[in-house]
Every structure is written in structure tokens, then in C-alpha cells.
Amino acid sequence: MKQRWNRKDLLGLHELSAEEITFILETADAFKEVGAREIKKVPALRGKTLVNFFVEPSTRTRTSFELAAVRLSADVINISASASSLAKGETLKDTARNLEALHADILVLRHSSAGAPQFLAQRLQASVINAGDGAHEHPTQALLDLYTIREKRGTIAGLHVAIIGDILFSRVARSNIFGLVKLGARVTLVGPSTLVPREFEKLGVEVSYKIDNVLPNADVVNLLRIQHERQRKEYFPGIGEYTRFFGLTKERAKLLKPDCLIMHPGPINRGVEIDSEVADGLQSVILDQVTNGLAVRMAVLYLCGGIAT
């Protein structure tokens, strides 16, 4: 049988083929079943050491990677930026090389600079998994979004997916765009023109500034969080105005098809990009995304960490 995976690193969906993405999703199917067992743990990565190296704060992604690694029987070490020698002026490369000298096999990296995971992947023998780099990519988030769509709708090709909100600063949006387009979905980006530049059309997607025109035709809406921490200038007049024009309010949700999926990568700003009633409603698959994130990350760790080096 032809080898379907031969990468030690997962840096982004941009460089993956549709076949590789599909193979990760199929592998995640197998690992999802482990979560339903009485003993939710398999020995696949026994003896391997995984370092969660989060230079930017994160709770859900770090926890999800940690739990995924534990369920694969790997040993896990967590390092945050403030607790690391980066705070003492050590370079990223030196910190990573020190981790490798301790025989770390897998490095899960979140960093505020785009390209940091690629930089390390080229210099380390260890597997490097991108857990979000700047505004570049967040591949495991997009994979779990793809997994959830495929699980709920059976397929991704031919579906119309609306990604709504802060596209400009969103690595989740970029990874989703790459993955969805490769798997044959139609993608429409929606948001204020300052946060959804027309340049995105070059990636093979549509751009709209009128949410009410898009919602009735969407099979999936993926709402992104307004990232206060990345906005150094004023991109829209205020939160209230954003909600009025682009928030998925209770009233606006009535425009959706009854089987349209509502997704959000979290953390949710309730009452800003989505109303509480909608986030907790029947069409919401937000918590399924969290559950599926575990299966997808187990698959990624197994595939990247399991290949012979």
C-alpha cells in the first residue's frame, strides 16, 4: 500500500494536499472512537515526550493537545512564555534546541510570529506541530472544523461555508480557507471591509459585506472572535456597532436554513459576535468542535510523531 503520510511536521493546511487532509480526518475517525471506551487511552505514542510550548496564552488548545497526548500515552511537559528562558532573553532557536537536547520528540508551538513553527521545523529533528502562529495558520483548528462539518453533513464538497468576522487577523480563517477550498467547498467571507479585504478573493473565495444576503444560502456559518488583542488601530467604530451589522443575533439566526451548522472556534464573546440563545441552540455544534478537536489532535500527533525518524 502506498504511504499516505510522510510528514514529521504539521505547519499549515496550505502545503497539504486534499488527500492528506482527508487522511487526517479518516485517522481522526478511528481516534474519536477511543473517547467512547471505558479506558480512554491507547499506547500508540508510549515512550514519546511532547512539549507544549505556548509563547502566546491559550487554554483550550493547550489543554486539548495535552489531553490528546496523554490519551496516546505520551509524556507531556507544558511551558509558557513567562516561565521560559525566552523571558530571560534566550532566542527561540536556543530554547527549542535545549528542549530537543532533553529528547523531546514532539514540539507543539504557539507563537505570535508567523513562520516560527516552520523556522523550528527546519532546524529540529523533533516533530513540530503549529498550534497557531501569528495571523498565519492554526491548522488543527481548521482540521477540527472540517471534521465537524464532515461528521454532521457527510461531505464538504459543494457546501457553502460563510466565515464571519475578523478575517484579517485570523489564522483560523486562513487555515479554514485553505482546507475548505481544497476539499471543494464554496467559501464566503463576511465582515467589515476593514477586516475583510478584497485581496482574499485571490484565495478562491467570495467576499461580502452584507451578512443578511449570505445567511439564507449558507450550509455552515463559522463565527470568528473579534480579536481585541491584535487590533492596534480602530478597524470598526465599536463593539455595539459590530454586533448590529455582523453579529449573529437571535433575529438574524432566523434567516438561516434549518440545517445550517453554527460554529465558533471559541472563546465566545457572548452578545458580541453571537447571541447566547444562538450559541446554545440546536444548530450550534460549538461543543462538538471541542470534542472533535481532541480526536483530530490525536490523529495529528499519531501521524507526525509516529513516523520513524
Binding site: M1, Q3, R4, W5, T27, A30, F31, V34, V42, P43, A44, L45, R46, K48, L72, A299, Y302, L303, G305, G306, I307, A308, T309
Partner: peptide, 15 residues
């Protein structure tokens, strides 16, 4: 996923 030889074989078994 229960094998004891992951990482030692050239080909990773499909789960």
C-alpha cells in the same frame, strides 16, 4: 494504535 512498534517501522499502520 495498540502496537508496540510505532516509530520503529518504516510505514505507520493505518488506524
Amino acid at each position: 494504535m495498540h502496537r508496540d512498534d510505532v516509530g520503529t517501522r518504516p510505514e505507520l499502520p493505518v488506524v
